[in-house]
Each structure stands twice: as C-alpha cells, then as structure tokens.
C-alpha cells in the first residue's frame, strides 16, 4: 500500500502481525480438518517466545534452586547440630564443615548464574520479518542457557539436600562416638561431588551459547 512504503522506519513488529493474521487464516482450518488440538498453532506460538525468556528463566532457576537446596541442607544439619551440641560442645567446630559443604552448593549456583548472565550479551535479537521467527542461533542459545540453568539448579538442590541429611547424621553420631566423624565426612564429600557434576555440565552446555543480536538496520 502506498502509505506503508513511504514510512521509512518500518516497525518490524507489524509484519509478523500481518504474517500472523495471515497464518491464522491457515490455522483456522485445523478444526475443520478434525483435530482437537491445533498442534501447528501451538508450535507456532512456542516459537514466538523470546529466547531471552528462557535464558533468564534458566539463570534464575540456576541460582534459585541451588540456594533452595543449600538452605534446606543447612537447616537440616543446623537443627540437629544445635540439639546435639548442648551435651557435647566439642562437635560444633568440626561439624561446621557440613554447613560449609552446603554453602558451597549455593556458591556453585551463583557462579553458574554469573556465567550464564554473561552469555546474555546484547539486547537485540531480531525476528525475521518473513517467518516471524527468531534466528536459529538465538533460539539455540536461549534453550541452551535454560537447560544449563535447570541442570545446575536441580542437581544442586538435591546435592544440598543430600549433604544436609548426611551432615545431620554426622553431627549426631559424632556426639556419640568421636571416631565416626571422619568416615561420614567421606560420604559427604561424595555427596557434594554431585553438585559439581551439575555445574560442570551446565558450564559445558552454556559454553556454546551466545545470545547475540544485531541492531536493526537503519
């Protein structure tokens, strides 16, 4: 149409809307085709979600779930430690190691979140005007960061729980028998290695991802 061609600064968003409405006309046929759920439409909608959403979600899950795991672990150990230390005060200094292991889990989460947030480099990831989809590199990057964040988050959550429960039992058995502590510490070390696995995989996955965008051409 004449008016649109004169407008230099085309707002790219409108094209996909036109696109969308055009395609809606396509999608509307699904019902007539006899399908209950219009999978094509849903897939279309999914692909419209910005990769930034997934990237930020991943980052938040990385730090949030790790810290939840660490906190959970700390309170499990801490309450038993307090109760047992009333009678046997000597256990307090040694058993702070359990708390430190739990804390380490939170730190893993923070580290991974920092790394992931550095992957979000520039704000502009532009949609293609024809298909309305984001560039494939951006999409991959977004999903990768999300995956990395979830991996780290969930593995740190259960690692924190594991270290916390073992730490609680370590405190109670140390109170009864001082020779047991060192052996149970080995169990805790193996437990905290789990979180480390999550962090490693998370970093590897996120290593490939780069959410880079370019400014739209003037």
């Amino acid at each position: 149409m004449v008016r649109r061609e004169r407008n230099r600064l085309r707002v790219p968003a409108r094209a996909p809307a036109v696109m969308a409405s055009q395609q809606l006309l396509h999608f509307g046929d699904a019902l007539s085709r006899g399908q209950l759920i219009n999978w094509d439409y849903l897939g279309f909608l999914f692909k419209q979600i910005s990769p930034y959403f997934f990237a930020c979600l991943g980052t938040s899950l990385a730090v949030g779930l790790s810290i939840a795991g660490a906190a959970w672990g700390i309170f499990i150990t801490g309450s038993s430690l307090l109760g047992a230390a009333i009678r046997v005060p000597r256990i307090t200094s040694k058993n702070l190691i359990s708390i430190i292991f739990c804390e380490a889990v939170a730190i893993y989460g923070v580290i991974v979140a920092i790394i992931l947030s550095t992957r979000l480099e520039s704000p502009f990831v532009v949609r293609d005007s024809q298909t309305g989809l984001y560039p494939i590199q951006a999409m991959t990057a977004g999903y990768a960061i999300y995956g990395s964040g979830i991996t780290t988050g969930w593995s740190n959550l259960v690692c924190g729980l594991c270290v916390g429960i073992v730490g609680s039992s370590a405190a109670l058995s140390d109170a009864q028998n001082a020779t047991l502590f060192v052996k149970i510490l080995v169990v805790e070390i193996f437990g905290s290695a789990l979180g480390l696995f999550g962090v490693i995989i998370g970093i590897i996955i996120a290593g490939q991802a780069k959410l880079q965008g370019t400014l739209p051409p003037p």
Binding site: W72, F75, I76, G78, S79, S80, L81, L82, G83, A84, A85, I86, R87, V88, L161, I165, S168, A171, L172, A175, Q176
Partner: peptide
C-alpha cells in the same frame, strides 16, 4: 521424612540423643 522432619523436631531429636548417650 529426612526432608522435613528437622524443621520442627530436629533440635529435640539432637537433645534426646544427647540424653541417651548419658
């Protein structure tokens, strides 16, 4: 139970085990 027992009863669990060692 290990997940939520200590929320309310972890401290007393430690205390009673301390008494048991006596």
């Amino acid at each position: 139970e290990a997940l939520w027992f200590n929320i309310k009863d972890g401290y007393l669990d430690g205390v009673v085990r301390g008494h048991r060692s006596g």
